[in-house]
Design a protein around this nucleic acid. Structure first.
Lengths: 200, 200, 200, 200
DNA sequence: TATGAATGAGTCTTCATTCAT
DNA sequence: TATGAATGAAGACTCATTCAT
């Protein structure tokens, strides 16, 4: 077996186990059993348990980042809505292929050593910052209301995480990804209330 | 020392440690060192490590549930907005007092045995269901738009979680709780976009 | 409660537990729960766990020794057989009253620290020595055959222990004590074989 | 070191310790120290302390059973006495090689969890049953007297146990195995008394 | 005398990691 | 590269014993 292939095989096994049982409950024994390799072989490809988890996390985060395109407005571009939908959809699709890793990301299948939590936090911080930049841009273009963009970005990311999490929990029963994305975008855009309704 | 007091002292130490280091990285040795008691004493008050964590989790969940009042509409009532703000504020306040427990709830300072994750999940499910009921009610009253209440509830809870999480991470630098609550409610109500704006 | 009475109450509880569950599986907690006293109270009456077990063992051994009468031959005496039967019977009776202690003696409900085994061993050694003396006497009187009295004594004691052990295991279903004693004595006296039979 | 060899080495160490100090007083630390291995290595070969003890017990019991041949009468056979002697001798020899295990068997170096005592009891029950069958056969052949075979079997086994136990205690000073076996068989056969002697 | 909260040494067991083959 | 036996630090939990009240 080619070395790259073997590495992938181990990563694959680990991803599934970490996603299912969490980091701590997954032992090296579990991983090597699932990968069908010997104990020592594992350490030929990864420095330690922490390293393989970290690599998986990185892989996922990079995958997400790579799939997101900045929204660009212009006559020759798809509409902003289309672009945003495309972004959401791309992420959802990636995660649906790597279901086990999603759990790590969302449930923080962690509780691990401080370092990991920081890494996760910084990833979300990036996502939030990206959304916030878009909102600020929207504001200058008078598309986005005059609101606290930081808070708004947090809420947007949080809302999407929760939807993804729910879809993960539901598995096959989850609603169609595209429809979900459209609904979410609509609610984020226009809010929950009937236009002109007064709740104050 | 009074027995109830000793229990509280141990719970206190454990909460802080679990919140900071997570469940797995917190050992009984850590807890008793922080609480300043002997090893055996711990087991006088708690059956095992799992039990004290569970008690902490329950305590927090019950605290939150106890602080939330159902929104009631009527001439003699505060406005719906006031009531919702009061709810959000009450929860935020509780959590700011029990900062360490908040981490458990939000970061799922967990990755623990399956049981705990289920417990957490069921708690959130309750919260989501509660919000969804409110949204459905609002719909019949023509306050809430015609939208998928499940998705909307998920988003509302997710958005609030993320705001809380951010406030936790920021510590003292976090914005004022009341102001946050108002902004969040406004964004949820009216959405991100300028009224009448077209992004499609 | 009178101090002697309280002591007896604790001994009683301990005897039953040691006999049933063995020395190691019986905890101080078990004993005080059964005796209905507080933890500290136990140590008011006994120095430690070892001490109460030792006392129980001593009590039993002394009881047995006290009940055995040396066989004396003479015109004005009951027959030797009667005297031996009386001895066996006395022991059986004592043990049937203190069933739980019997288990300690026979099963060596022990496996404990070396000291106890030595104590048990020395008790049996005494019993064997006593029997051996009787056999030697019998030999000089031409009642007992010309055999190795040490081996014979060992066998007699071993045979009786096994019968008692069996009676203990059987509980209520065990045969009548007197009948058992008679049969045992008969077999010891005349052996298993038909007189004159040749197995060689 | 070959895997089987390592296992044997651990069993060896454990047997000696269990035999000397008893089950409870023997810790895993004792065993690994004596075997000269690391803590984890022990658990590579045995599931837990109980498992290694059980294996030792089984090994011994099976060894004994395997060495015993049913007594068969017939012209072409060695005499019954020879066969019985051979049985006794075979057992004694096995036990003299595995001195430490003998202690477990005889002193019930136990006092352990109920399960073990039951195992021991059932082993002895088998032995007794085997002897009883032989006695019944002897009765039909008019070799054995008209006596309660159950009681007689108990006595025979008890007598032999005690002799073995004594030999164990004495160590090197114990009489020669063959001579012991002959004496025991003689006493069992013909009893203690001079033929025709009246003790009644 | 009586109590029972507190103690801490000691036990079993797990598991990430190493290293000789 | 691949193996898997060996390692030992670290963890959870027990329980006989003490001592202030």
């Amino acid at each position: 077996m080619e070395p790259g292939e073997r590495r992938a095989q181990i990563l694959e096994a680990a991803a599934e186990l970490f996603g299912t049982k969490g980091y701590h409950s997954t032992s090296i024994s579990d991983i090597i059993a699932k990968a069908g390799i010997a104990r020592g072989t594992f350490y030929l490809y990864f420095e330690n348990k922490r390293a393989i988890f970290e690599e998986l996390l990185d892989q996922l985060m990079k995958g997400i980042v790579a799939r997101i395109r900045r929204v660009v407005l212009g006559a020759s571009q798809p509409s902003a809505k289309e672009q945003m939908l495309a972004n959401i959809h791309a992420v959802v699709e990636l995660l649906s292929q790597r279901r086990s890793l999603l759990a790590i990301l969302l449930e923080g299948a962690v509780g691990l050593d401080v370092g990991f939590n920081e890494k996760l936090a910084s990833f979300y911080e990036q996502a939030i910052a990206m959304v916030e930049r878009s909102l600020r841009l929207g504001k200058t273009m008078h598309l986005v209301r005059d609101l606290d963009t930081r808070v708004a970005a947090l809420m947007a990311v949080g809302a999407l995480k929760e939807i993804l999490h729910d879809a993960l929990r539901r598995g096959e029963e989850a609603p169609d990804a595209r429809m979900l994305a459209e609904q979410a975008l609509d609610i984020l855009s226009r809010g929950l209330l009937v236009e002109g309704a007064q709740v104050s």
